[in-house]
Amino acid sequence: MTPILQGKQLVKRFAGLTAVDGVDIAVQAGEILALIGPNGAGKSTLFNLLTGQHQPTSGEVLFEGASVNALPPHRRARLGMGRTFQIAKPFLGLTALENATLGALQKHASPKVARDKAYHSLVSVGLHGKMDTPAHLLTLSDRRRLEVARALATEPKVILLDEVMAGLNATEIDRALDLFKTLNQQGMTFIVIEHNLKVVRTLAHRTVVLDHGAHLASGTPNEVLNNEAVVRAYIGGRAK
């Protein structure tokens, strides 16, 4: 079956630094894929290659089987790719509702309708109580939630989440897991970058491990997390 989103032999070099080194990644429709690896492994860069913020030095990105290398980020977003950023970037001068509305406008041209849909997105992440709060007054974890809500409001087919669990307490994490599982049951595909291994075990169907920009291991969360090489990469055994 054709993966809904696929990266083939993706390489990204920044003058002197190879951030992504020949990575193959594929996610099937309806799957939840976790992307893990130590800091600096190239996970966020890989996201940027998939969604178009960076052009690959070589390699191809395919969405629903068709190459999207030539498409800028906004076109890929319209095809059905949603994402959040490692450092959350909601529109700081606008309220939470306005933020989410801007996401909803992608699929609903009428601002009134978009606003209603946006409200529901806020409800799903639990921010509806702060819908009139300007984003710059929100806490960091609320900003992260707002970014998720805004991305969800675009009704994407695939959503790429970059460390959205960071800074959430246990209750909030459970609530987020519930939300993602529900959305996944409704058909949404996920790629999540996560450091919280408990989340990875609970949520992900499959896991890919990156280290120093290259593919280190993949498989089910259990397989991967018990893999010796993966453990060493995280804890940092001596380089041989």
Partner: peptide, 24 residues
């Protein structure tokens, strides 16, 4: 009050985030 008008404000606030939600 139309969609492009809303999009304009998003563009003013943060062009990269605006593109990520589908705004040209």
């Amino acid at each position: 009050n139309c969609r492009t008008g809303h999009y304009l404000v998003a563009v003013r606030e943060d062009e990269e985030a605006a593109a990520a939600i589908g705004i040209n």
